[in-house]
Each structure stands twice: as structure tokens, then as C-alpha cells.
Design a protein around this nucleic acid. Structure first.
Length: 271
DNA sequence: ACTATCCCCTGACGGC
DNA sequence: TGCCGTCAGGGGATAG
């Protein structure tokens, strides 16, 4: 499940390939992946140069010549791949973007068909505002996080998963973060002292930087644009480890259902 | 403000 | 072997 580190890894892979290339064709094999008007999407993209690649939270952006942008969200099983232009598409390949004088193509693949691409009408800022996305988790500052958590009675896990609080954390990194911080996923946001929020913000940035350094977590479907798996799954401490001893205190890791998600934590050293 | 539930979708997995 | 039910989960919508 791509979260911020996986989307950042994809963005970096695309930055080495896309900028400066001009789109020659868009082949759509499953129009449902295009959240905006599919005909308009293809018309606008064709003939346009890609100028850059951006990211906010779990959203990936392709910046096109003329100020238009495409937003991509991979949801659970979406993949963005760079493949030889003649590679045969498999049954989960929903969209291909071809480029002028280029032997490779951009492929959007998604087993579960939850992921979406969308041609934006306005600016990235307008899109983030309309989607009510919070600040990007990779660079969130303590003051901003404190403002967004203070006085909230909801649990930390629910708040951190909520993309309008903070954009980029998903189920895996939230559980790992709360384990590192020795905080219970059910701990109320309002109960955190200011210095705890400061440590939490620093912990979020550090965890995400480390995961990006390992090129993300490959548990089910995630691979980078070259088809390579990440390595952060080798360092997970609690996620998916129900019954294993806590690496800090030895108590058994428990799995509970919190904020609508399977949640792993240590019942002894997280409070 | 916040929670719960459903939906989208497919592959994996357990039970029989 | 094979059939069937269940589950997983990001995020949007909707009900409470």
C-alpha cells in the first residue's frame, strides 16, 4: 500500500525519466481509472511536454507544459512503471503514456482498480484545498502538528491517518511511528504535552526519511517505476507482527481494530 | 467534531 | 481439487 515514502520513491524515479519528454499518445484500456473526463484527459495530454514531477502526501503530480497538472493516487495496489514501449500490457495495466522519440512508456497498473488519475482544472494549491489535505508529513513542523492535534479528543491513530490532519501517513507508518514514540494508538490527541508533539513531529520526519532511504515498504504490491521492491519491510517492528515479542520489552504484539484499520502495537510499552 | 459503515475490487486464504 | 465465504484497506460518501 503506497504511503508517502513509496510515492516519494516513485516521484524520484519519474524525475529521472519524465521531465522534457513530450507525450505522443495516451492509451487507456480501462477508462474507470481516469477520474476526470477521459476524452479531455487524452486530448489535453497528447502533444504536451512534461515539465516536472511533484508530490504532496500520497498524491503524485505530473506538471505539464501550459500549467496543467495530472494528479495520481495509487490507493492500495496502484503501480507506476517505466517499461519498454513494446512490453505487452497485462490484464491489470489500465493506462499507458507514450512519448516522442522514446523507447520507453509510462504504465499505470492496478490490480484492485482503486487508483485514479485526474487532470486538474486549476492549480495544485486549489486541488489540495478542495481535497482538504493537511501539510505534507515529510516536512511537518511541530507548531503546525500541535495546532492540528490540540484540543482534539480523538485517538492518535485516527488523527494521524486522517489526511486532512497530516498528508502522507497510512496504516503501516502510523503503527511503526506510534511504536517508536511509545504512544498508544488510542491515546487522545489532547492529552499530549507540547514537548511530546514536538518529539512526535520529529519522529514522523525521521521515520519517513528512513523509509525513503530504504526506497519504501514492499509488503503486497509496491514496486518502484523500475519494478524494484523497497527494503523498509525488513525493519518493521510491529506492523503485521501479532504474537511476536516486542523488540523493546518482549511482551506479545497485539492486533486490534482501531480507526477502521488493523492496528499492531505493544500493550506494555505503548501508553 | 467525530465515529461507524458501506462501497469500490481482486487475490489470498481457510474450511469443507 | 475446487468451490465458496471472508478479509484486507485508502478514501469518499453518507448516516448517526
Amino acid at each position: 500500500m503506497p504511503e508517502l515514502p513509496e510515492v516519494e520513491t516513485i516521484a524520484r524515479g519519474l524525475r529521472a525519466f519524465l521531465p522534457g519528454r513530450t507525450i505522443s499518445a495516451v492509451r487507456c484500456r480501462f477508462p474507470g481509472v481516469i477520474a476526470s473526463d477521459p476524452g479531455c484527459f487524452q486530448r489535453v495530454l497528447r502533444g504536451r511536454r512534461v515539465e516536472g514531477v511533484g508530490r504532496h502526501g500520497k498524491y503524485l503530480f505530473l506538471h505539464l507544459q501550459g500549467g496543467r497538472s495530472v494528479a495520481v493516487h495509487l490507493r492500495m495496489t496502484g503501480q507506476v512503471l517505466i517499461q519498454p514501449v513494446h512490453a505487452p500490457p497485462d490484464s491489470h495495466c489500465h493506462l499507458e503514456i507514450l512519448f516522442r522519440r522514446c523507447a520507453r512508456k509510462l504504465v499505470f497498473r492496478d490490480v484492485r482498480k482503486f487508483g485514479r488519475l485526474q487532470l486538474l482544472e486549476g492549480s495544485i494549491e486549489e486541488f489540495l484545498c478542495a481535497r482538504r489535505l493537511g501539510p505534507d508529513a515529510l516536512t511537518v513542523r511541530a507548531e503546525e502538528l500541535h495546532r492540528r492535534l490540540q484540543g482534539r479528543k480523538r485517538g492518535l491513530k485516527a488523527a494521524l491517518l486522517d489526511q486532512s490532519t497530516l498528508a502522507g501517513l497510512g496504516n503501516i507508518y502510523t503503527d511503526e511511528l506510534l511504536f517508536r514514540q511509545r504512544l498508544s494508538p488510542l491515546r487522545s490527541c489532547a492529552s499530549l504535552r507540547r514537548e511530546q508533539v514536538t518529539r512526535l513531529a520529529a519522529g514522523i520526519r525521521a521515520l519517513l526519511r528512513q523509509a525513503i532511504g530504504k526506497e519504501g515498504t514492499s509488503i503486497s504490491d509496491y514496486v518502484d517505476p523500475r519494478g524494484r521492491a523497497g527494503r523498509f519491510q525488513l525493519t518493521l517492528k510491529v506492523y503485521g507482527r501479532a504474537g511476536s515479542p516486542c523488540p523493546r520489552c518482549g511482551a506479545g504484539i497485539v492486533r486490534r481494530w482501531i480507526a477502521g484499520r488493523g492496528t499492531w502495537s505493544c500493550p506494555r510499552c505503548q501508553s
